[in-house]
Each structure stands twice: as C-alpha cells, then as structure tokens.
C-alpha cells in the first residue's frame, strides 16, 4: 500500500514557503491528484495554525509563518478563528465531568446500592435475572417464529383445498354441459379425476454467483484487521456493503475504489445509503489479487464533496 507520500515535516515546510520550486510543484501535483494528500495538507495547516496560536512553534518557524503563511486575508481569518476557538473551548467545561453540590436522596440511595456487599448481591441477582430473562426472550422468539411458520403452512393448505374444490366444481359443470349436449345423463359418466400436477418450473438462466463483503468504518489500512474477500472462479459479481458512521448525515455519497498502486477500479456517484450502509456491486473480474482502498465521500446539499472515510480490504483469488 502506498502510504502518504509526503511527510508531515515536509508539508509544514511547504506551508511556510521553505521548499524549493521543484519540491513545491511535486507536493502540489500530489495534492491535486490524491485527495488523501490534500486532506493531509489541510489538516496539518489547521494544526500549524493551532500551534502558532498556542505558542508551540519555534521562533524561526514563527517568522516564516508571519512573513509567508499569513500573506492572505483568508489565512489571517483562519488564525483569528483558531484564537476564538481556543478561547471558547478552553473556557468550556470538560465534557462528561459532572459534580453535584450536595447529595440528594437519589444520590444517597445510589450510594446505598454501591456499598460492596449490597452491590455484589444486586449484581449477582441482576445477572441471574438477565440470563433467565434472555432465555425466556429467546424461547419466546423461537416459539413465535415456529407458530408463524405453522400458520403459513396451514393457510397455504386451506388455499390449495379451496382451489381444488373450485376446479372440481368447474369440471362437474362442464361435464354436465357436455352430457346435456350429447343427450346423455350426467350420472352415466364417471366424475373426472382431478390430478394435481406440480407446476412445471420455468427454465431460468443460471443465476450469477455473488460474493459479499461488509466493510466497517474505522478499520485501519495496516494490521490484521483488514477484511478479506475470497473470489473463486465461479464468482461473477461482488457486492460490497459499506457501513457509514451514524454521525454522517449526508443524503448522497460517492465512492472510489483504487488498487494498492492507486489505479482507479470504480467510481460511483449519487449513491443513496440504505440504512447505515451503502451497497455497491461490481463485476468480480474487475478485481485482481491484492489490497484495495475504498474512499467514501459525502455530497452536501450544495454539491460540495467531502471525504468521509477510507476502507481497506484484501482480495484473494481462488
């Protein structure tokens, strides 16, 4: 897998105007070709601004910051915003820390239940209750499912019987009409036998063999957590189910699939998520053995495209 080709240190030097023309051209070329590099530069730019605001920047870098980085009004606004953000954020109480001034009856009751012996007893009782409750729930679900199946079978048998009775009545009527035309008594002819034939199965072309893989957000490209997609020779279609973080609120998404070497395999835009995932289908022969990177981008109402996340998986051909 190609890692971010530009180091953080080099990006900082680029942003401070300390690189040669050739080096600058190289970084710009990569940034405009590869969204990850662009994203990295934008993130490092924000971090550099934060370091400047908090004073965590060496003197020579500080000077380059003031002579080069702050040249545009937009950047000066970014710095002003960073100062405001630092002020507001550090004045805000730390989240998830709550202290109540005096203990209320609820607190006292809670304190009673947190005494070791009481707590252990309640924990054991709760656990037992949870286990029994879970078993009952599971059993109830199983029984409910069996009951539903039995009802379905019963209903289909009733429907079948009704159809048979109707067919028999029709045949009888037709027979009576025929007999009447021939002048024969209907009693002389035997009742036609109704044979139940299983309906002939329509001939369908063989269905494509599909292999599916679910990709979850937050999986790093390195390490053993990268999911594997095994494609055998008979597989013709691959379905990827790309999970989206619940915090993402985009209505439409765009996905880009690339090989380890950055070669684009697939691009699909205007994808609507189904629940918390985006389904993608592609031909199995589009994938060769190796690691793939799937980039998911969110499309805002104004049409702006923003990176949402990167997903990695390995393809194994068998």
């Amino acid at each position: 897998m190609v890692e971010y080709p530009v180091s953080e240190e080099k990006i900082v030097r680029y942003l401070l105007g300390e690189l040669s023309e050739d080096e600058q051209v190289e970084i710009e070329g990569r940034a405009f070709e590869d969204q990850r590099v662009l994203q990295e530069i934008l993130t490092i730019e924000q971090e550099l601004i934060d370091d400047y605001v908090s004073g965590d920047i060496p003197e020579e870098k500080r000077r380059a910051f003031q002579t080069h980085f702050l040249a545009s009004a937009e950047r000066r606004k970014k710095v002003a915003f960073a100062k405001a953000l630092a002020t507001v954020v550090n004045e805000s109480p730390a989240p998830a820390v709550e202290v109540s001034p005096s203990p209320s009856w609820r607190t006292k009751l809670a304190a009673f239940f947190t005494r070791p012996m009481i707590a252990y007893s309640f924990a054991a009782a709760s656990f037992l209750l949870f286990v029994v409750g879970s078993l009952l729930v599971v059993d109830r679900i199983r029984l409910g499912s069996e009951l539903a199946q039995l009802r379905n079978v019963q209903e289909s048998q009733i429907a079948q019987n009704r159809q048979l009775e109707k067919d028999l009545a029709d045949e009888r009527l037709r027979n009576q009409e025929l007999m009447a035309n021939r002048g024969t008594s209907p009693q002389e002819t035997p009742t036609p036998e109704i044979r139940r034939e299983s309906p002939q199965q329509p001939t369908t072309p063989s269905s494509p063999v599909v292999v599916a893989l679910s990709l979850l957000p937050g999986i790093s490209r390195s390490g053993s957590s990268v999911p594997q997609l095994s494609i055998t020779k008979d597989v013709s279609l691959v379905r990827l189910q790309v999970g989206i973080d619940p915090q993402e609120t985009y209505k439409r998404y765009r996905v880009e699939l690339r090989t380890e070497k950055g070669q684009q395999v697939l691009t699909q835009g205007n994808l609507t998520p189904r629940g918390r995932s985006i389904p993608i289908s592609l031909k199995a022969d589009a994938l060769t053995k190796g690691r793939y990177e799937l980039t998911v981008k969110g499309i805002t109402d104004s049409g702006t495209i923003e990176d949402v996340g990167f997903y990695y998986f390995d393809v194994v051909k068998k």
Binding site: A73, R76, A80, A84
Partner: peptide
C-alpha cells in the same frame, strides 16, 4: 526587506468572533 503580516490587523473583531462562535457552536 520582508513584510511581516499581523493576523489581527485586518481581523479585529475578537469579541464579536467569540460571540459568533458560541452561537454557531
């Protein structure tokens, strides 16, 4: 020799910015 930019020279609305940030948060 080299111009030094002052980040607060043309972005002076510190208090307004903080109020706005709180509103936007």
């Amino acid at each position: 020799y080299q111009k030094t930019y002052d980040e607060v020279a043309d972005v002076p609305d510190t208090e307004i910015r903080i109020d706005c940030l709180q509103k936007c948060l």
